[in-house]
Structures are given as C-alpha cells and as structure tokens.
Design a protein around this nucleic acid. Structure first.
Lengths: 235, 235
DNA sequence: GCATATTTGTCCGTATGTATA
DNA sequence: CTATACATACGGACAAATATG
C-alpha cells in the first residue's frame, strides 16, 4: 500500500537514512508530535542526520511510524527551534549553520550572558551555575566528553538564568540548540570542552563572590575562544 | 480546581464571534496556513478577538473557510509567536499577558536595545531608525494613532537592528508581537504614543551623532515610562 | 459520582499545484 | 516539453480526553 521510495546511491548530497530507528518500527509509537520532534532532535544530535539532509514527508513519516500530519506538526516545532529549515514547496532539511550563523549565535550569546552577569542575580540560578560546574567535573572523571559538553550548556544556560527572565532563557535555549548543529561535525569533543571546565569553576567563584567584572571578563574570553575554535573546525 | 470554564452568555468574558469575517465565507480562500495565521493575527490586533477567547477548531475553521488541518498549522505558527496559548486536549486560546509577562518583555527589550545602541552600528539600520521617526510624524499628522504605534514599533525594531544580528531582530519581533496583546485592552492610544514621537526623534539625532550615552539614557527613560504606563493601564 | 455529548488529537486517502529531472 | 516526485490542503474517520447534565 505504501510505496517506499528508495534513494539511489551515489547522489552525493545528504540523504535520509533508510531507517531512522535501530528499533525499526514504532520508534515513537505512543507518539504525539512532541515525541516525534524529540526523536528527530536526538537523531540530529547523534549525527544520524547530518546538516543538509532532506526529510521527505512520506519517507520520514514511514520511518518514524507516524502520519504525515503528525510529522508536519513536529516539523513546525523544529523549524521554530532552528534545527530544521523549510523551503517553500521544496520540503524540510536539516539545517546547516553558515559561519555567519555561528558568529551571530555568539554575538547574541554575548548580549544575553553579559546582561545576565551585569544585572541582579537570582540566587537559585546561582546555585544552578555551581551545579553545572560540578556536573562537568563528574562527566570529565567519567571520560564522557559528550556529557561534558552538555554540562557546559547547562552552565551557560544557568548564567543567563541569573537575569530571571523566562524569555531570555528561551532565547538561550534556542541558541544552544542551534549550536549543536555546528558541533555535529566535530569529531573530537575533548579539546572543545576540557579547557573550559576549570574556567567555568572560576567564573562561578567570581559570581558567588559578587565580582561581576571578573566574571564578565572570563566569560568574554571564553566566548571569543570558543567561537574561534568552532569556526576554524567548521571547515 | 480553579479552571477557567468557558463562560456562559452574559458572563462578560470573551467568546468567539460567530463570524470572523464580515465577508462571511472564504476569507482566506486562496489561502495557506500562513494566510490563516495572518487573518487571525489581524483579528487579534483589531480587538475582534480579545485575550482569553477560546478558538474551537470546528467553528474557527468553518468561519475562516479552511480545513481543520490547515487551521491547526496556523495555530502552531501563532502559538510559537506567543499570540495564542495551547492547552492539551482543551484547545487554543487568545493569550493574555500577565503583569509579569509585560515586565519580562520590557526587561528583555532593555537588554536588546541597550546592547544594540552600545555596539557598532549598521549604517543601513541607522537610516531605518530615521525613517521610522518620519513615519511616526506622518501618522500623527494624519491623526492615525494606531499607525503611530506601528511606527514606534518600527523605530525600536530598527534600534535593535543596529546590532546587525538576525537572531536579535527576530527576538525583538516576537517581543513586540506579544506586546500587541497588552495593547488591545488600551482604548485610547494617543497618550501612549504621542509623547514619544519627539523623544524618538532626539534618540535618532543622538544615534546619528554617535552619542551612544545620550541615546541610551533617553531610551532607558522611555522604556521605564512605557512599561509603567502599560502596567497601570493593564488593570 | 456517573453517563452523555462535545472537542481535541491523530491518522488516512485523495486532489491539486509546483518544482525538478 | 513531458513526466515524475513532492508539498500543500482537504474532508472524513476514530480513539481519547474533557466538559456537561
């Protein structure tokens, strides 16, 4: 009943993997659009779907075991998050970040993180900052550099959360989600995350001591280096 | 359980108008989900749909002359814009902003607008700032206070655009779209917009003269007063 | 508290217009 | 230019959740 459109080999451009789930059918069986979106998010984060991959509605909905309508709802969510790109009458693609995009993400991050450091600090968020530092240390001891990267995201999210603004928090979440697209091309995460573990701890120290200026300077140095590092790896 | 149940007639709370279009059928006949979303946006902006109004899928899709599936796509768009609120298995409502929401929008606006003023200025955006000032002047001469409000939005969007960041621009657009929800309860727009026409012109002067400090101080004064004005009118 | 009616969430199959090969 | 593949939109259907009497 359902015609399976098998991709031809040797096309060169990124293609949708035949099976999006190692479990085969019913990856998101219980699934609402949110679960479908989460499944696709994970596939992108894990590198199963590389930037530029097209996601045809028919093949994708079949692979995930959901209907096209449900898949379209999930697409809407992910397009808004910046993880997918939508071209009129052409379909949906895994977004690929240009160098300008990476630069813009870091520009916006500077605005958000500096504003949060300069303004009044939410004490609960301050604890979260410290928690993220410890989370990163534990991940390093476990040798899990992916988890170190996640902890680093938590750290900077917590920094922005110092401002106590739900809308700024959400913007930060979107920026970090977009950055994951740039990280999928990075094979060795260690040099990207290890150097910053100690720095994050010192930033947390300064924040707890109320030394906004020092915290801000360290943060600025981090953002400059991280951006340069990612941009150079991006080619 | 304090659930806001759908009000009976004469309750005073909002109901879906029977006809969303004076033209009756086929308001968005040619229409895709985008056009449906735009139609709903206008209805909210014009006050035809006040915050709290429920939008049943059946009645709304019939009124707009589109299918349920298409309407749901439009809902997704508007929920992401913050204009509508979605409750699981309960439906979609016109969002109403709390005082905390308004405060958060202004907090974020301060971050974005100050950052844009402080940083390097995109010359094209600087021209847009001036254009918005003139747009506001023309609207006042025409006595169209709604258009004055639109021009004011353009002015502050242009200020943020000085930073040259597409992502900051988009965040600003979302914030201003949310603010429209707070403005629908305002009956007399004149005292909200008239005082700021002259101030905007002076801010533009300072920006063009490269006097960031003066521009920033005027901007800060504007944001403080506008926020207080809106919050006091909001009850 | 229970039974009923309404609405949402999901899914299917089809028709149509558009972009690409 | 023709043919194909595909996105977009429609209407109908059913299960699940919610609201109503």
């Amino acid at each position: 009943m359902f015609r399976r459109v098998e991709p031809r080999a040797g096309d060169g451009a990124a293609r949708l993997p035949e099976r999006l789930s190692s479990a085969g059918r019913a990856l998101v069986a219980g699934g609402g659009a949110d679960r479908v979106a989460e499944a696709l998010r994970d596939l992108v984060a894990d590198g199963a779907l590389v930037p530029g991959t097209r996601l045809p509605e028919d093949a994708t909905s079949a692979s995930l075991g959901v209907s096209r309508n449900t898949l379209r709802e999930a697409f809407r969510l992910l397009v808004r998050e910046g993880l997918l790109r939508h071209e009129l009458h052409r379909g949906v693609f895994v977004r690929s970040l240009s160098a300008a995009d990476v630069a813009d993400v870091y520009r916006f991050r500077r605005v958000l993180e500096f504003a949060a450091v300069d303004g009044p600090h939410d004490p609960v968020a301050l604890q979260r900052v410290r928690q993220a530092v410890e989370e990163g240390g534990a991940a390093r001891r476990a040798g899990d550099w992916d988890a170190v990267g996640t902890a680093n995201s938590h750290f900077h999210s917590a920094v922005v959360a110092l401002a106590g603004s739900p809308r700024m928090d959400e913007s930060m979440r979107h920026l970090l989600a977009e950055l994951r697209l740039a990280f999928v091309v990075v094979t060795d995460l260690r040099p990207f995350h290890e150097p910053y573990l100690e720095e994050n701890a010192r930033i947390a120290d300064h924040l707890e001591a109320g030394e906004r200026g020092r915290a801000g300077r360290l943060l600025a140095a981090y953002l400059d280096r991280a951006e340069a590092q990612l941009l150079s790896a991006h080619r």
